[in-house]
Amino acid sequence: MSESSPRAWLLAEAPASRHQAWLGRAYRSWRLFRRNPLAMAGLSVVLALLLLAVIGPWLAPHDPVAQILDRRLLPPGTPGNLLGTDELGRDILSRLLYGARITLTIVIMVAVLVAPLGLLVGTVAGYAGGWLDTVLMRLTDIFLAFPRLILALALVAALGPGIENAVIAIALTTWPPYARIARAETLTVRGSDFIAAARLQGASPIRLVVGHVMPLCTSSVIVRVTLDMAGIILTAAGLGFLGLGAQPPSPEWGAMVASGHGVLLDHWWVATMPGLAIFVVALGFNLLGDGLRDVLDPRAGQG
């Protein structure tokens, strides 16, 4: 086995720069991650979704919204319509490919909104303690007390249907568990000597929370977000299904399932194809999350 030089550089016992130390640690985590075949499968699904979202429009054989009424409800395998067509004669494959972009947009926007918010609320509450903790955590409890989909429904109903509002609604209903996790992690490190040492150096509370507490909470939050991605996709699809998410003719997967359910018994593929896409992507995110947990959260992994 030949030891390639970039590899040796990454695994160096004595890194020569901040960069090398950081990359070396990332590489070690990657090697740990690579050993888990299921996690790698999850990663490939997520990467495939990313790729399709980028190049999908060029791959799609048809316009996703072009209606050809005399080619309605063609079964999968029809020449020119690999996965069949829906009740308006639109090509399902093309719609799936365009829909990947919508799904990914929803997932990324929710993650970008939710993870920092939950992290911030949780770490501040956990570190500050006292009345601030009480106020922030009771607020969290209030959001947690509502069933997620019902609250999202209410918000979308108030804000009006559409992808942006669906994202906002999902984000508002998803952050509380992250705040809880971040707070719990903060409480375990708050009393540790390294936090006391940082305080002794005169570090301000902001520096302590951002520079010392947050790095220790991010990994569990990232894992949780990844595991929740499946749920987020399903909630988005659910909102789409109920007609409160993406609006027709937009090829959002949940909305596609919704439009297909009327013809499910005679023309199963119309609802099944987008359903399968949702299933595969949700499963991929779940597997990825599991693998990330093994790497990032040493307590859960390695057993």
Binding site: R18, D193, F194, A196, A198, A203, S204
Partner: peptide
């Protein structure tokens, strides 16, 4: 327990200088 597990030696030593 007194060194931050995610900070390099460099960060641990330069942090006090940065704070002050």
């Amino acid at each position: 327990g007194s060194l931050h597990p995610r900070h390099t030696v460099d960060r641990a030593l330069s942090e006090p200088l940065r704070i002050h």
